[in-house]
Design a protein around this nucleic acid. Structure first.
Lengths: 210, 210
DNA sequence: TAGATTGTTAATCGATTAACAATC
DNA sequence: TAGATTGTTAATCGATTAACAATC
């Protein structure tokens, strides 16, 4: 059983998906075991950091041996919560919303797209991978009738906070936000931002800096 | 003139676009001046951190007064390099590639989409906002004939490193990478990753943690 | 057993916050 | 001038790295 040792820092949490991805790759390459040193060379973190990170969640390794790749992959999957399924709704069926809706990979790892909502009447009824676009006014009723875990906000900046308030009223506790604003939410709600402009601007800074 | 004081840490750089965004908003609201304390309350960083961050690049404030919003906005724009124009190419015209291509906002702030490339022959010639999709085999020639600043990689995981190597040969020094891999590049090249899965997984971890 | 490598403590490094003199 | 707020140094906090005893 995985026992969290204490409060895990955000720095550690942000590295977990990367471990997961590299371990997946090792499995694909039929690697059975790996030491923190070998993993360090691949992933680019220090061996020390890898051992520290993993020890936040349990003793997954074995002295003199290293880590069993498959076991560690599964453990990290459980830590991240990837062993469960999640119902999602996308709000805003513009460029980004459609791209996410069409991104079949998320389906495969347990994220089910349950609804897509848009304010534009012209979009209503159009299907994206078998999910018809609904009127955003139907969102409150939909959230009442369905157990939704994650709202994916892809609306323009100006309507993002309004949509956010709406999904909060619907009881949602996790928001994946693509709108270029910092959403105002209560403490028990998690927002993960994908701020594309900020990412691009950071790139440009570095481009000029070199 | 902006004089960089020393090596700026990545933590500071990643905050710059957020300053830029909040200052834009203040301009929209006709706010002329702001103190680090007021900005702190809006943006959620400490006033101390804001002053420290800005002082990496110069003395933009005035004791007893605070900062001139418009000036500071422009200064940060220059620091980020947003006063210049950049030519971009998108490689991979799938969901994400198309979404980025259609994202008109980047055009407006100086990022010109010069070419879109895809390996799928069915896509060739299709236009996205006046830019026709070209064959990926024509990329080397295109990079030779055009001065491209930024390559936006939106191809599947499996072909990302190959495409990356190709743009490196074409002399590109900045890559915005949407493929779920860590690209291998020489030291003088900057890669900024948008790893959507990692972002989603981090959200899920936090959802379960609360 | 001997060698390898973990788990974990201690040391170091860097980033954030606090404090305050400088100055508008 | 007095009040406000910066720029900047010093203190604190947290995260990373190093070291090594434990142990497989």
């Amino acid at each position: 059983m995985i026992e969290k040792k204490k409060n895990i820092s955000m720095a550690v949490i942000k590295r977990l998906p990367k471990y997961h991805r590299y371990l997946q790759e090792l499995i694909n390459n039929d690697v059975d075991r790996i030491s923190s040193k070998e993993l360090s060379e691949k992933i680019g973190f220090t061996a020390s950091q890898i051992r520290q990170d993993l020890n936040c969640f349990g003793d997954f390794g074995q002295q003199g041996y290293g880590y069993n790749v498959k076991d560690l992959y599964n453990e990290i999957g459980v830590i991240l919560g990837l062993d469960k399924r999640y119902n999602t709704v996308i709000i805003g069926a513009g460029n980004i919303g459609q791209a996410i809706a069409n991104y079949t990979k998320f389906d495969k790892v347990g994220f089910e797209l349950t609804g897509i909502f848009d304010a534009n009447p012209k979009m209503l009824g159009i299907k994206i991978r078998d999910v018809a676009i609904r009127d955003i006014d139907d969102l409150p009723k939909f959230l009442e009738e369905n157990k939704i875990d994650i709202a994916i906000i892809c609306v323009p900046r100006i309507s993002a906070q309004r949509v956010c308030d709406e999904v909060l009223r619907g009881g949602i506790k996790a928001i994946w936000n693509f709108a270029p604003v910092d959403l105002d939410v209560p403490e028990d709600v998690t927002v993960e931002n994908v701020h594309l402009s900020e990412s691009l601007y950071t790139l440009v800074y570095q481009l000029n800096d070199k």
